[in-house]
Write a protein that binds this DNA or RNA. Structure first.
Lengths: 164, 164
DNA sequence: ATACTTGCAAACGGTTTGCAATTTA
DNA sequence: TAAATTGCAAACCGTTTGCAAGTAT
């Protein structure tokens, strides 16, 4: 999906989350720990509903209610562990922010795939524009819509071996 | 607010809209005409609710229901007359697409102001990234969040030098 | 004890839609 | 007169929230 590689992090997501919660007078409960672990178990993009499903499929009985998931997502975002990247179908989509390099996305309108990319010139451009407008940037979201290489490929000769 | 200037257009928005509606087997009703006119009476960004308000304030009795406004917004978007640019407060924000040059936005998180800007290097960058990924771009949305010059300005007196 | 947290169900809010009445070609 | 359109109110749907019961310090 992407060749972006995680950068080395000194502290685990759980620890980082506990740290943040402490500063807010909150606690790292077992529910919150279950959520952080599940969230950082894979690098895929996800929305609230997908996360709830993953948590409900657990066999260890560590289910967490939908409300708690929503509350935790907000906290994970505030703590800098997650960031919201897009809203393709009116659902907020999240990805890892902590321990993962900053990047943007090509979004295929056909298959919905998110392709990550980085390009330094974007940051140069943003700095320049910010300076020109006396604007202090805190974040940005660049969504590039179109058709991915796979979907551009002519379908005439589709591999029928994919069918089972 | 912005020094982007409208480009010359051969056909009026109403005509363009009628043209599009025809191709869909639809009609340019008085309600739809009222809406297009109101929408293109000013270049400001707006959301559905603001448009409804503007239409309700009319003294000529040309009121249009909320549903019709929502339906027309979708049609105006499909026809290429409008485009959705941001979603600051969970409300879709629209702007003129037809007869207005392509640009992006700085979005002030404090006052909600949208500042338009253009920078050619963005397009160069997008072309490069698209080529690298075999991606065919159809559109993009760049939202830059932060604090505008106005909101950065201190409300109270701020000392420029550290006087001890 | 006090403060934080959870799960449930109800509320929220922007947007969409079913439908009967109305308008248009 | 058949097809499109409107306005109303209800539905929709992801998300948020009030609250009572539970848990940690």
């Amino acid at each position: 999906m992407s060749d972006l590689t995680a950068v080395d992090v000194a502290v685990s997501p759980e620890a980082k989350f506990r740290e943040y919660l402490m500063t807010q007078g909150m606690r790292l409960t077992t529910e919150r720990e279950t959520i952080v672990r599940e969230v950082f178990a894979s690098h895929e993009h996800f929305d609230a509903d997908q996360l709830v499903s993953r948590l409900n499929q657990r066999t260890d009985g560590k289910r967490v209610s939908r409300s708690t998931v929503y509350r935790a997502l907000a906290q994970l975002k505030d703590s800098g562990l997650l960031r919201a990247v897009a809203r393709p179908n009116d659902r907020e989509v999240y990805e890892h922010d902590y321990g993962y390099p900053q990047h943007d996305h090509l979004i295929c309108k056909e298959c919905g795939d998110l392709i990550e990319f980085v390009d330094d010139s974007l940051n140069e451009m943003l700095s320049r524009v910010a300076a020109q407008n006396g604007f202090r940037i805190s974040a940005h979201r660049l969504e590039v819509y179109g058709k991915c290489a796979n979907c551009c490929r002519p379908k005439r000769r589709q591999r029928k071996t994919d069918m089972i």
